[in-house]
Amino acid sequence: MSYSDLYRNAMEKATARDAWKAETIEKITAMQSSHKKNTSVRHICFTAFRHSMVPLASAALIALMFFYSKNDFLSPSLSDSSNNTPYVAAFSANDTASIQEQTAPIGRSRSIAIFPNIVEAPTPEQALPSDSCSLDDAVVSTEQYDQAVALLEAQLMEQSQDGTLPVVLTKSDIVAQGYFSANDTISVVFALPATSMGENLYYVYEIPLI
């Protein structure tokens, strides 16, 4: 028998204990029921913002906050977490301006959404109740958050310099206002200085955690 056959045999034997599969399927089933609610509300929320349907967006956000605040929304393995309070308060219901959304072809950022005239977002200290905050099992530690902020600050500076951004920034202009985490992403909210139109810009970056 060749060495490669021995390697194949050994790999085959390694899979003999597959109790983890039953456990995984059980957890997946639990996750799917909660995930469905989560994604639908998020979808309604972002679609509504995109089409300036502010009342609907507000309602969806309230629903989102409600879902996030319920322990039974979380998968069973996480329901024992005491720090479930997410950051979802960055968007105002009073604003009727249209929402622009654009794809960000940079780094690992998934998208940039610009939310003009939005109420003040919480500080990272307010958003981070302790050393980590978990909405699902994609736990975001302060280290991950700091890394994400550093990465995105660098990207914003780059965009500012090459003219992609509508404003020119200095390092001190970029302030991370908070974050929220769901569906394996961390979304960091940045406040940028007012443009010539007198609008305060808030940039939301979604970064996949994978």
């Binding site: 983890w20 456990e23 957890k27 996750m31 995930h35 099992d137 569906n183 394996d184 994978i210």
Partner: peptide
């Protein structure tokens, strides 16, 4: 297990 959870989440 994490890989399959990612499949559900993403």
């Amino acid at each position: 297990q994490d890989v399959f959870f990612s499949l559900v989440r993403t």
